[in-house]
């Protein structure tokens, strides 16, 4: 069978579908001071997965606020800098009006994902971190 680390080179999704791959990618991103990119990406996925039925409205609002505050509010943060102003305004509006929808972070997540696919992921595949692991 194909070793996992070769699969990681196939696509960003293959990498993010494997726990060891995620850990290695996180180590690499932390060295580059952009570990928040990955945490934000997973936070968006986790937020979308919250079931409206089994999760209290209050909890969803609190979580949406926490994601907004930690990653988007500070315009100098690594995540915030990669998200389009219109996308940030949309999320801010959702939080302020308390209109909390499962897909409210989807666009922001896509923007961060594109950035990782075009930038940090190919750099990771050429990094010492990855090459030493393989």
């Amino acid at each position: 069978p194909t070793p996992p680390y070769l699969k990681w080179a196939e696509s960003l999704h293959s990498l993010l579908d494997d726990q060891d791959g995620i850990n290695l990618f996180r180590t690499f991103l932390q060295q580059e001071n952009c570990g928040d990119l990955l945490d934000f990406w997973f936070a968006c996925s986790g937020f979308r997965k919250l079931e409206p039925s089994d999760s209290k409205v209050e909890k969803r609002l609190k979580l949406a606020k926490a994601i907004y505050k930690k990653y988007i509010l500070d315009n100098n943060g690594i995540v915030s800098r990669q998200i389009k102003p219109a996308t940030k305004s949309f999320i801010k509006d959702c939080v302020l009006r308390q209109q909390i929808e499962p897909d409210m972070f989807d666009q922001a997540q896509m923007e961060i994902q594109s950035m990782m696919e075009d930038n940090t992921y190919p750099v990771f595949l050429k990094s010492d971190t990855y090459l030493e692991y393989t």
């Binding site: 579908d17 494997d18 726990q19 995620i22 997973f42 936070a43 986790g46 919250l50 609190k62």
Partner: peptide
């Protein structure tokens, strides 16, 4: 009551793939 950080961590962990 969960702190915001705990809530965030729980959310991030929930999206991670399970160990194969």
């Amino acid at each position: 009551i969960d702190s915001e950080d705990d809530l965030l961590q729980e959310c991030i962990s929930s999206a991670m793939p399970k160990k194969k």
